[in-house]
């Protein structure tokens, strides 16, 4: 693989990675959001694989595979199952209720969200300048993408009213960090990567369990219902 192709492919993968984050902001159907998130996992794995191939570091390839399995397979699977578990059972009086499956009205509407995403991306570029300047390679030039996804993920976390949408936001944040790690230094040491992945997996499991309990306790997963604990 020559440098130009490598750069092209890397930029393509990074572009897809960022695009997926933006699309998550755009969509309302939780099922579609989970699907796009899975696609982003694929893009992330692709980035990792490209880096590993270019540097001929086979252990990075292995890590990329692991990431692909986790982010594009396992985590979306978990969420899809949560989504089906949340859907009203057949025969339930509210069978037609689709509120659990849709992010109907985010705190910041979609148009403003997209605009914010643009601003956040610009911010990421500004902030990442010193990172790029330290070691300008094709990979580090893409670092702003990772940071932008981190910011967009955080933004999703802040503005989405559905529990699952918030989980996706958290995972976007995490994907962004992983991408940053790969782009900056071909990933962190293996043991750290393992620990991190394990923790993320557990966090998602915890959130899934809590979503179930939330539904049992509050009758839904709308986060606006959870305002009992306050100083008011």
């Amino acid at each position: 693989m020559n440098d130009a192709v490598y750069t092209q492919l890397l930029d393509l993968a990074c572009g897809a990675f960022l695009l997926a984050a933006v699309v998550v902001l755009w969509l309302r159907q939780l099922a579609s959001i989970v699907r796009v998130f899975a696609l982003q996992g694929v893009a992330l794995a692709a980035v990792a694989a490209l880096l590993g191939t270019y540097d001929r570091r086979w252990e990075v390839l292995a890590v990329a595979t692991g990431i692909g399995v986790l982010r594009a397979g396992l985590l979306p699977l978990l969420m899809r199952r949560a989504l089906t578990a949340l859907a009203p059972a057949p025969g339930h009086p509210y069978e037609e209720d689709v509120s659990e499956a849709r992010e109907t009205e985010p705190l910041v509407n979609v148009a403003a969200s997209l605009l914010s995403a643009a601003l956040l991306t610009l911010l990421a570029y500004a902030v990442a300048r010193p990172l790029v300047e330290l070691n300008p390679t094709p990979a580090t030039r893409a670092l702003p993408v990772g940071l932008a996804v981190v910011l967009i993920g955080f933004f999703t976390l802040v503005t989405r009213r559905r529990a699952l949408a918030q989980v996706v936001g958290f995972l976007l944040l995490d994907n962004g960090i992983t991408a940053t790690a790969f782009l900056a230094a071909s990933g962190v040491p293996l043991i750290v990567e393992l620990g991190v992945s394990f923790d993320v997996l557990l966090a998602v499991l915890v959130l899934r369990i809590l979503t179930t309990r939330m539904r049992a306790a509050f009758g839904g997963t709308g986060l606006d219902d959870m305002r009992e604990l306050s100083d008011r």
């Binding site: 976390l157 529990a163 958290f170 509050f218």
Partner: peptide, 21 residues
């Protein structure tokens, strides 16, 4: 597992995980 507990746990996990990320 009361409502308040679930609420507290959710806030705890989401805020702390985001922070620690």
């Amino acid at each position: 597992r009361t409502r308040a507990c679930v609420e507290a746990a959710w806030k705890y996990v989401v805020i702390c995980s985001a922070g620690i990320a």
